[in-house]
Simulated assay, not measured.
Amino acid sequence: MPVSLILSLCLFKLLSWSISLGSGTSGGTLAPLLTIGGAIGALAGHAIEGVFPGLAINLPLAALVGMSALFAGASRAVLTSIVFALETTHQTNSLLPLLAACAGSYSISFLLMENTIMTEKIARRGTKTPESYESDWLEKWTVGEVATRSEVFLADTSTLPEVYQYLRQTTTKCQRFVVLDTDHHFRGIVSLSALITYPDQTAPLHVVMAAKQYPSISPTSSLKDAIELMTRKQVDMLTVVSADESTIRILDYTNLFSAYQTGLREYTHREKHISVRKSLSKRFAYAKKGKQTPWKSGALSGNE
């Protein structure tokens, strides 16, 4: 096939493909990728053969490698690209070139692209498209690890004026309190807003608690189970009580936000991509100043 024909096929196919996808249609990505990749591989083989004629480049193999490499980089389906090329051509001697080219193409795509060609348009519409399987952060932690201990314990026989006086003496900043009976058994929890807004300000505490009951959950349950329970019961906090009542804690929305923020920071730090542009700008800046980069001059060592 003449080089001019291969070049025309590559350019016009790329142009028509861009117009087709840019018009808003979905699909039609596989065949154009294979056509454009095969043409690029054949052109690269022709170029290398012209510069280094002694290498004896196999042009069909170069087209096959280019086809698979472009598809692997655009879709990040490395094994699919390799197996597809082998199954359609039965050229087992092309396995090593396919492995090297597809692995390199995938690495470049992973470093420079946030989404694949299959999910880019979906991501632009605002739909989250995870590139890999992710564990649910809310299933990693148990309720007992996140819930906070109550600093104030109130008796269920105390009246509201007695509770207010006790709270003024403790100068606590807690907004939610654990209520116990005369035998120090757990009765429930009550919030400061519920105490203040209760109509009868002379009522005992167990009467105030009866107006608003909060469900309890085991310390070994996951945060996801806690959120589902809070959603079903339409409450903003839960009591965390062990079977023997040795552990009594309170789980509210602030604990859930803190756990989610911790998981988000861990995920962002782990999934941070390499900034090639920032690395190159640093190299050029040091070159203009006539200095060596820190990693070459030995300025950084140890934990630095």
Rank of each mutant, 00 (worst) to 15 (best):
T254Q: 14
Q165K: 04
L79G: 05
S105K: 00
K212M: 05
S158Q: 15
S23Y: 08
L160S: 01
V83G: 02
L154E: 03
D252T: 06
N115S: 07
C174Q: 15
G24I: 02
A194D: 07
H273Y: 01
L30E: 03
I117Y: 07
S16L: 15
N58G: 05
S68E: 08
A203R: 02
T268R: 13
L21C: 04
V276N: 05
K212C: 06
V65W: 00
G45N: 04
A77C: 13
L280D: 10
V241T: 14
S150I: 00
P2N: 14
L300W: 05
T182D: 07
T220E: 14
P32F: 00
T247H: 04
A62I: 13
W141H: 14
N93T: 14
E145S: 12
S216F: 01
G302H: 06
S132C: 11
I36H: 00
G73V: 05
T254K: 15
S158R: 11
I117W: 05
Y267D: 03
T202L: 08
K282I: 11
T268H: 07
P130M: 07
E134Y: 06
E228G: 12
T92E: 08
Y260G: 06
Q165E: 13
H273I: 03
L229Y: 01
L5F: 12
I19R: 13
I6Q: 01
L9R: 07
Y214N: 08
T254A: 12
M230E: 00
N255D: 13
P97V: 06
S107H: 03
D183G: 04
A63E: 04
T171V: 09
S109T: 02
T254R: 14
N303C: 10
G188F: 02
R265T: 11
R124Y: 14
L70Q: 09
L33H: 09
S281G: 11
